[in-house]
């Protein structure tokens, strides 16, 4: 790819990106004094489970009562989903003809 083409893509994407925060949060929110860390939620050590149900309740309850179990679940779930998604994406890429094999390491 020529450098010019790469620069054009870079510029177009950069200009497009400026629109994204405005679309999702609104210009006033992005540029107001509320933006950033000040807008963020307070850090809470306990989750209010009274309005939750199903899986949300289970996870929040675990978070409140057994933090080590919560950490184990988070780590295992992330590893499992990471592996599963990688496997699925690999299949899709293979179907698109983007299969990889051992490559030569020439610069």
């Amino acid at each position: 790819m020529s450098t010019t083409r790469a620069l054009v893509i870079l510029l177009v994407s950069l200009s497009f990106t400026c629109v994204i925060p405005v679309v999702f949060t609104g210009y006033n929110e992005v540029c107001s004094s509320e933006a950033g860390s000040e807008q963020s939620t307070e850090f809470r050590n306990k989750v209010d489970t009274s309005k939750l149900s199903g899986i949300e309740y289970l996870i929040a309850d675990m978070y409140n009562n057994d933090r080590v179990l919560y950490a184990v679940v988070v780590t295992l779930v992330m590893a499992t989903l990471g592996t599963g998604m990688a496997f699925l994406t690999d299949l899709v890429l293979k179907a698109l003809g983007l299969e990889v094999s051992r490559i030569s390491h020439k610069e």
Binding site: F43, N45, E56, I59, Y63, R67, V68, Y70, A71, V72, V73, V74, T75, V77, M78, L81, G82, M85, A86, T89, D90, L93
Partner: peptide, 29 residues
């Protein structure tokens, strides 16, 4: 980092899972 931050209660598991869907596809690409 994932484990220690989760023990301290600083991981939002639902957000991490949703983000991981996009991230896994991106990482493969």
């Amino acid at each position: 980092g994932c484990f220690t931050y989760a023990v301290k209660g600083r991981v939002e598991i639902f957000a991490a899972l949703i983000m991981l869907i996009g991230a896994s596809i991106g990482a493969q690409i």
